[in-house]
């Protein structure tokens, strides 16, 4: 957290003010989200949650079914690979990005899941990414209970 500067444009009665403000945040993942992150961190497992009534499996898990609004408790492990539903290639730079652009973001339907998971796609050129391609999760060596414990998804070997 640094200070701020004020700079007068040369020869003009115009000033530019530059600095930064620190915003403290505390985000809680909740009961279901915590289980998902703990499994990612400790066991490299991607967990979904199933609604037995609607026979839908949500990844990432949520506590309420989107169809019947029932309380969900049945955790199931889903596959580490899946199918790319849709994607975008981002060339813009913003301070919240974890990697420098271009970044490829995809929505991936993992094997056994009925919903898509948003994540980064790596080890592939943006131009070569296609909807419907097979992807697999790459886990980080050091994991700390974050969605970024999955480093990214990369194209899976055929078969």
């Amino acid at each position: 957290m640094e200070g701020w500067t004020i700079e007068q444009l040369e020869g003009k009665d115009v000033f530019v003010i530059e600095g930064q403000v620190a915003i403290p945040n505390n985000y809680s993942a909740g009961i279901v989200g915590s289980r998902f992150l703990v499994e990612l961190r400790d066991n490299c497992r991607i967990m979904g949650i199933r609604c037995p009534k609607c026979d839908r499996c949500y990844v990432p898990p949520k506590s309420t079914c989107m169809e019947c609004f029932g309380q969900l408790t049945e955790f199931v492990e889903v596959g580490k690979s899946g199918t790319l539903l849709t994607f975008t290639v981002d060339h813009h730079t913003t301070p919240v990005q974890t990697a420098s652009p271009p970044n490829v973001y995809g929505i991936i339907k993992l094997d056994g899941a009925d919903t898509g998971l948003l994540h980064l796609i790596g080890e592939v050129d943006g131009k070569a990414v296609k909807s419907g391609m097979r992807l697999e999760a790459v886990f980080n060596e050091e994991r700390r209970g974050s969605i970024l414990d999955i480093k990214y998804f990369r194209p899976a070997e055929a078969g």
């Binding site: 957290m1 403000v21 915003i23 945040n25 505390n26 985000y27 809680s28 993942a29 301070p95 209970g145």
Partner: peptide
């Protein structure tokens, strides 16, 4: 329970 504390710089 997982929670994340962080300080976000707003430039």
């Amino acid at each position: 329970l997982i929670h994340v504390e962080y300080t976000q710089p707003w430039r």
